[in-house]
């Protein structure tokens, strides 16, 4: 039995340890948001976060996940509230056919967690492992930048608010 956390909940699987994380997520765990486009690490449609870093779930053996934490596209939103990235992908043309979208969002989320002011080159580097055949990438880059701006606006508001709070408290 392999135990690991998926989207915040501990899950167990009796899959063989060399089964691909992708297959375990999709079939027994029913998390079909993670997609398979190639099965060889090229397309990134299967991207998930493993202990906070983006990986291709088609290249991870589920046995390697024992005790670790996986976040899939289904685990990005906070309940019903979409993340800034998810909202931006809907509004700014980041998703067309949508098959690359789950992986893109995971890769972009990982970027924004380490850098909320990325350059376009940073964005392109962060999603270079996620092939998209629909968009030409421009709208995806724009969506990620829009989300980054939203995150920055929120944190600066929050820090202003907390500063203000601090002042009143003083």
């Amino acid at each position: 039995m392999i135990r690991f956390k998926v989207n915040g909940t501990v899950r167990e699987t009796d899959a063989p340890p060399m089964a691909r994380l992708l297959d375990v997520l999709r079939v027994p765990l029913g998390l079909t948001g993670t997609k398979e486009g190639c099965g060889e690490g090229e397309c990134g449609a299967c991207s998930v976060m493993l202990d906070g870093v983006p990986v291709n779930s088609c290249l991870v053996a589920v046995g390697q996940c024992e005790g670790r934490e996986v976040v899939t596209v289904e685990g990005l939103a906070h309940g019903a509230e979409l993340t800034p990235l998810q909202r931006a992908f809907i509004e700014d043309g980041g998703a067309q056919c949508g098959i690359c979208t789950p992986g893109m969002l995971v890769a972009a989320e990982a970027l924004l967690r380490r850098n909320t002011s990325p350059t376009d080159d940073d964005v392109r580097d962060a999603i270079a492992g996620n092939l998209c055949r629909c968009t030409g990438y421009q709208r995806i880059v724009d969506s990620i930048q829009a989300a980054a701006a939203a995150v920055r606006a929120k944190t600066s508001k929050a820090s202003k608010a907390s500063k203000a709070g601090g002042e009143t408290g003083a």
Binding site: L31, G33, T72, L76, F89, G98, P102, L105
Partner: peptide, 23 residues
């Protein structure tokens, strides 16, 4: 106008059902 894509929500949350996702 750039209205929100109607299939956008399902696609960004992983809920959209593609053929390989059919049970």
């Amino acid at each position: 106008k750039n209205v929100s894509r109607v299939d956008g929500h399902a696609k960004v949350t992983g809920q959209a059902v593609y053929v390989d996702d059919l049970t």
